[in-house]
Amino acid sequence: MTDYLTTPEGRRIAYDRIDGTGPGVVFLHGLKSDMQGTKAVALADWARRTGRPFLRFDCSGHGVSGGAFEDGTIGQWFEDARAAIRQLTQGPQVLVGSSMGGWLSLLIAREHPELVAGLVTIAGAPDFTEDGYWAALDTAQRAQMVRQGYIDFPSDYGAPYRISHALIEDGRERLVLRAPLSLPFPSRFLQGSADTVVSVATALRLFDHATGSDIRLSVVKGADHRFSEPADIALICNTIEEILARIAPRIG
C-alpha cells in the first residue's frame, strides 16, 4: 500500500513500508526508476517471507512522488532518502542502492553513518553526473547545456533523459570518489560484467577508493545493468541475509 510523507524541504514522497523484526532494509532506486521496479518488488516479497522490516520509496520526480524529474538534483534526492530513513525506520538500516541509489546510499553512509548498519550497491553509479554525462559532452555540447539549461541524452530504457545543468552542478557538490569514503560496516558491491551503463572499472574504482574492514566486490559474468534475472535477485537476497547475519551480534 502506498503512503506519503512530506520531507523537511516540503517535497511529497511516496513510500511502501513493511513491518517486521530485527534490523530493517531500505531500497534506493536508480535514475528514472521507482519503487515498482523488479528488484524493489522482489525485495518486498523477500521481506514478507522473512519477516524483515523493509522500506522502498520514490525520490521526488520519480514514480508517484511529487515534483518533476527535470527539476531534481542529487542533493534533493539525497535529502529525500535521508528524510525517508529518518522518519520511517528505527535504528541503523541495511541500505540497498541500485545504480543512482548506490550513490545516494554512499552519501547517506558518508554523511550519516549512524543511520547505516550495512550497505549493498547494485551496479552502483557514484559520481555519474560528472564521470558519465558531463564527461560524454564535447566543448560545444557543454556550452549548449550551459546556455539552454539541459541536454537530452539517449537512453537504453525508452525516451531520452533530460539532464539539467543544475543536476550536473549540484552533483559536483556530492561526489564521493574524490574525497575519503569510510564504510565502517559490512559493505558489498554487486556488479555485472555485461553492464553497458556502469562499467566494471567504476565498481573497481569504488572498491579501491572506499575504506573499511569488511568490503567485498562481486562481479557476475554476463549480468547487465538491470541485474534483475532470477539468479541476480537471489544473489541480492543472499547478500542482504549475509550482512544481516554479520550485524546481528552487535545490533540485535
Rank of each mutant, 00 (worst) to 15 (best):
M1R: 11
M1F: 14
P8W: 09
G10R: 05
R11W: 07
D16K: 07
T21L: 14
T21V: 12
V25M: 07
L28K: 01
S33C: 06
Q36L: 14
G37M: 11
K39N: 04
A40E: 03
V41M: 11
V41C: 12
A42G: 11
R48A: 12
G51Q: 10
R52E: 06
R52S: 12
F54L: 07
F54Q: 00
F54S: 00
S60G: 14
G63H: 02
E70S: 13
E70W: 00
D71P: 01
G72T: 10
G72Y: 00
Q76I: 01
F78Q: 01
E79T: 11
D80K: 09
D80L: 07
R82L: 15
A84C: 15
R86Y: 05
Q87I: 11
Q90T: 15
P92M: 02
P92K: 02
Q93V: 05
V94S: 02
L95G: 03
V96S: 06
G97V: 02
S98M: 10
S98T: 08
G101A: 05
W103C: 03
L104T: 12
I108C: 01
I108G: 00
E114Y: 07
G118M: 07
V120K: 04
T121L: 04
I122E: 03
G124N: 08
A125S: 14
T129L: 14
G132D: 06
Q141W: 06
Q141F: 01
Q144A: 15
R147M: 09
Y150C: 04
Y150W: 15
I151D: 01
F153A: 07
Y157V: 11
A159T: 05
R162T: 07
H165W: 12
L167S: 09
L167T: 05
E169Y: 01
D170P: 08
G171S: 10
R172W: 04
L175V: 08
V176I: 10
A179W: 13
F189L: 15
L190Q: 04
G192M: 01
V198D: 01
S199P: 10
V200D: 03
V200R: 07
A201W: 12
T202A: 11
L204K: 15
R205W: 01
L206G: 03
L206S: 11
A210Q: 02
G212H: 06
S213Y: 04
L217I: 10
L217C: 00
S218C: 10
S218Y: 09
V220C: 00
V220I: 12
K221I: 07
F227G: 04
E229I: 10
A234K: 15
A234C: 05
L235G: 01
T239R: 05
L244F: 06
L244P: 06
A245K: 13
I247Y: 11
A248P: 08
P249V: 03
